[in-house]
Simulated assay, not measured.
Amino acid sequence: MRICYLDESGGCEAPDSNGAATPVMVILGLVVDATSVPTLTRDFLALKRRHFPGRFTDSRALDHILMEIKGRRFCR
């Protein structure tokens, strides 16, 4: 079985509307074999923890997925 992950990024703001404007909308699809999902999840979380160590203080490891990293700001 394969799993498809779809995501969008950006918006339709005019480039000169503000400093955080994202005038391009991007849609991405990624298809992976279902057996790869556990390894991909662990590797993805390891990257987030390595590059943003101060953002992950919750002791429950899978809760770290909820911390979304967007450019200069962080969302939860």
Rank of each mutant, 00 (worst) to 15 (best):
G54C: 06
L45Q: 01
S17L: 07
G54E: 05
I3A: 13
L6S: 09
L47R: 04
G71C: 02
P38W: 01
T35H: 14
T39W: 12
R50W: 07
R50V: 02
D43C: 12
G11R: 00
H51R: 15
R50D: 09
R72V: 07
D63K: 03
R50Y: 11
N18H: 09
L28S: 12
L30W: 04
I27D: 03
R50M: 09
G10F: 00
S36N: 10
D58V: 10
I69D: 05
G29E: 03
C12R: 03
D63R: 07
K70F: 02
G29A: 13
L40H: 06
R2Q: 15
H64T: 06
N18R: 01
D33C: 08
T41Q: 11
A21D: 01
R2A: 15
R73F: 13
S36G: 08
D43S: 12
A20K: 09
H51P: 03
L45C: 01
G11A: 02
K70G: 00
V32D: 06
R50I: 04
H64V: 01
D43Y: 07
Y5I: 15
D7P: 00
D16L: 05
C75I: 13
T39R: 14
A61Q: 15
F56K: 00
P23Q: 05
L30N: 06
I69P: 00
L40Q: 02
I69T: 05
A61L: 15
G71L: 02
F44W: 09
L28R: 10
L47W: 08
R2S: 15
G29C: 04
R2P: 01
T39A: 15
Y5N: 11
L6Y: 10
I65R: 06
F56W: 02
H51D: 15
A14F: 06
D63M: 10
S59N: 06
D7V: 03
E8L: 06
K48Q: 05
R55Y: 11
P38R: 01
F74N: 08
D33N: 12
R73G: 10
I27A: 10
L47P: 00
D58M: 07
D58H: 13
A21N: 00
G19K: 03
I69V: 08
L62D: 06
N18K: 00
A46Y: 05
I27W: 06
G11L: 03
E68G: 13
V26Y: 11
D43K: 06
L6W: 06
C75M: 13
K70V: 03
P15S: 05
P15K: 04
D43M: 11
T39D: 13
D33A: 09
S9A: 11
C4W: 02
P53Y: 07
L66C: 13
A61N: 14
F44R: 02
E13I: 00
P38T: 03
P23A: 04
D63V: 03
F74D: 12
R55L: 15
F44M: 12
H64I: 02
K48L: 02
L6I: 10
G54N: 08
C75S: 14
R73L: 13
L6G: 09
V26I: 11
A14K: 05
T22A: 07
I69Y: 03
R76G: 09
L6P: 00
L28F: 10
S59P: 04
R42S: 14
G10V: 01
H51M: 14
L62S: 04
R55A: 11
P38Y: 01
A46R: 07
R60G: 12
A14H: 04
T35M: 12
L6H: 08
D33Y: 05
A61S: 14
G11S: 04
S9E: 02
E68C: 12
